[in-house]
């Protein structure tokens, strides 16, 4: 997942993924540019969906296009996708036209909320305060949502605080936990097993199955973590429990 080969495919490749889906791969790298191309194609297909299209699943550098193979042959879908790719690549690829919105997530770092903060700091030869300052100092791009419902894969983390996954994953990570794995960071929206090192926890609910869309964060959004103390954490937890908490968001100028 963290390998970074710096090479793009020219043109992007069309790969069958079983008999009912095609994966369009743009490059073998994780970058805002490549991820922007993925969403440019997803947006174009969503804006004028082919009759055979079932579901789109975007990821870091590829778009999975699920199609109705009872209606259409692989060759037809592949040909149409090549045309659609040509229309968005590379012209719009370098530019993500989405509204760049930054969501501010309050995080209580360390202690029982972030049991691995000390370990991350000692691996990075930094103080826990430095790890918090570095982690909360940048806007992270939501590259994709996967692994579990609403789990955002966030890119753009400072390499100084990168750290390996736990050798033995936890059987239960509490909802809202903020973790680090290699040079990625992310938030567990729901309690689940997990192997990322946990440095904090946000009281904000990122996934609600009764809402549509169920995920607050969308790919292409940005996230910034705001360190809060335990009093502020308790106050926000009460607001969240009462359904009164509104996540602060701001538009980034492109």
């Amino acid at each position: 997942m963290t390998q970074r080969h710096v090479d793009s495919y020219e043109p992007p490749v069309i790969l069958p993924s079983g008999d009912q889906a095609i994966s369009v791969e743009f490059a073998a790298e994780i970058s805002e540019r490549v991820n922007g191309q993925v969403y440019a194609l997803a947006d174009a297909l969503t804006a004028s969906p082919p009759a055979w299209m079932n579901e789109l699943v975007p990821a870091y550098r590829s778009l999975l296009v699920q199609y109705d193979a009872f209606q259409v042959d692989f060759d037809v879908v592949a040909a149409e996708l090549r045309e659609r790719v040509a229309a968005v690549y590379p012209a719009t690829g370098a530019r993500d036209h989405r509204q760049r919105t930054v969501y501010e997530l309050p995080v209580a770092y360390g202690g029982e909320n972030g049991p691995d903060l000390e370990a991350v700091a000692s691996q990075a030869r930094l103080s826990p305060e430095d790890v918090v300052r570095i982690h909360s100092g940048v806007n992270y791009r939501v590259y994709m949502i996967g692994f579990s419902p609403g789990f955002p894969y966030l890119g753009g983390m400072d390499e100084r605080i990168a750290c390996p996954r736990l050798a033995t994953p936890r059987t239960r990570v509490p909802a809202g936990s903020v973790g680090i794995a290699e040079s990625q960071t992310g938030v567990y929206p729901n309690a689940s097993p997990g192997g990322w090192q946990l440095i904090g926890r946000t009281p904000v609910r990122l996934f609600d199955q009764s809402e549509n869309p169920p995920s607050v964060l969308q790919p292409g959004h940005y996230v910034r973590f705001l360190p809060v103390d335990s009093d502020e954490m308790s106050r926000i937890e009460e607001l969240v429990a009462g359904g009164e908490y509104v996540i602060k968001s701001t538009a980034l100028s492109a």
């Binding site: 997942m1 079983g18 889906a21 994966s23 975007p58 550098r61 999975l64 699920q66 996967g146």
Partner: peptide
């Protein structure tokens, strides 16, 4: 020995 890829979407039967 490189089994890891940049994470992407998976289908039933993969």
């Amino acid at each position: 020995g490189r089994y890891d890829i940049i994470s992407d979407a998976v289908v039933s039967g993969a």
